[in-house]
Design a protein around this nucleic acid. Structure first.
Lengths: 222, 222
DNA sequence: AACTAGGCTCGTACGCTGTACGCTTTTCAC
DNA sequence: GTGAAAAGCGTACAGCGTACGAGCCTAGTT
């Protein structure tokens, strides 16, 4: 054993090491591939050793979600509210897209972790300081989160990651499923998207900017 | 056995009976409580009998999701586009709120079922007929779906269902977790929401109407 | 030096899961 | 009546989360 097992070198467990390895494993193989035994194995430990750092798998999943929230950029304080919200929303999408398992886990997790709370507080602060009323700040917060999470959810359930994969996928799987007489409009859309290419990041910005612009007049100017 | 086992009376299995009972079971006890053995038991059958109607549990889950989509109202054709979208979005929220397990399942399901496709086609048709371009209709479709799914996801992860439960919950669990000095803005919000009551349905309409209003000028009038 | 307390590790075991395999029963066309 | 197909299911296997309790290693006290 090393002299400071807390630090998290390659020997010696810690809650942090367990949780981070779990995140890495979920990134690689999905949350379905994450089992306590396999996780312990990856850490060079016995399965039951993990339970000294984590009360249950549920708690592990909670901690993993909070790691994800921790990666999301907090809204900057110096800029205007819309730019700050834009940046943190883009960051949230990036993070959720790189941990696609996280979004599906959120449904079942009912109590927010510390990083989640910190983030909510910072967002609410940003909105309040920009002149939104308490009620309106709550609305705006919900609305933005709905959009970000909803986007991440839809993106995670897309069967492709890149534009090239989209092209392959559309030709091989999607279009044959859509007889032109039953789905004329979807065929039309698919054709256009196929021709022009489809970029999720750009799609995200469209809705985000629309929402931000629609919220702007709802703050009482300070 | 009855004479027409296909029909789905109380005797005789069928894919429909299996899937519907699975949905009912998930509604009652969550998707975690749904096992092939317990499902078979509820249907008065042996576990392996289910596999004559469903290739795997994955396929069962896909079919369950499609049942949920089937329950969502299609956009009406006779009204203006905004009313039609509003109605179907409200319907979607209602349905997803009554099957909270569904939203968490969507992340892992990559190929849309027939009811899902039918719904997408109808929505796209509604938007195109209202004068949205192909690209803009895609944007609008994504944006609305993001909002609906995101809302459902957030709603599902709330630890309460009714306003009364919210009050209890806020006092017992939420507020003690939020020291006023670290989370001044969240405390402020919680106090106001606590005083005024909090209605998810109303919250949903705020964002929905904001989005619909912001989309209106983006169609080229017909 | 001997002893002890407490933190850490983990082997074993239990009840559960999805489902492959193959056997039995039922249904139906001829 | 007969043969074939459809429907039902008992058994078994690998893997899951985790309760339990036994072992180890270290620090502090006597």
């Amino acid at each position: 054993m090393s002299e400071q097992p807390q630090v998290g070198s390659d020997a010696g467990l810690s809650k942090q090491r367990v949780v981070l390895e779990a995140v890495r494993m979920a990134d690689r193989e999905g949350v379905a591939g994450l089992s306590m035994r396999r996780l312990a194995n990856a850490l060079g430990a016995g399965a039951m050793s993990l339970y000294h750092y984590v009360a249950s798998k549920e708690e592990l999943l909670d901690a993993m979600i909070d790691v994800v929230f921790h990666e999301i950029e907090l809204p900057a304080e110096e800029t205007d509210w819309a730019s700050a919200m834009r940046r943190r929303s883009v960051s949230a999408r990036d993070v959720l897209a790189s941990h696609p398992w996280a979004i599906g886990l959120m449904e079942s997790r009912t109590s927010p972790g510390p990083a989640n709370l910190r983030h909510r507080e910072a967002v609410t602060a940003c909105l309040r300081r920009a002149g939104f009323s308490v009620v309106m700040a709550t609305h705006a917060n919900w609305l933005l989160d709905c959009y970000v999470y909803g986007f991440a959810l839809q993106e995670a359930s897309l069967p492709f990651d890149t534009a090239d994969e989209f092209a392959d996928m559309a030709e091989a799987v999607y279009l044959p499923q859509l007889p032109a007489d039953m789905f004329p409009y979807l065929n039309e859309s698919a054709a256009v998207l196929f021709a022009e290419g489809y970029d999720p990041a750009q799609e995200f910005l469209f809705g985000l900017d629309l929402i931000l612009a629609a919220l702007e007049p709802l703050r009482t100017s300070v």
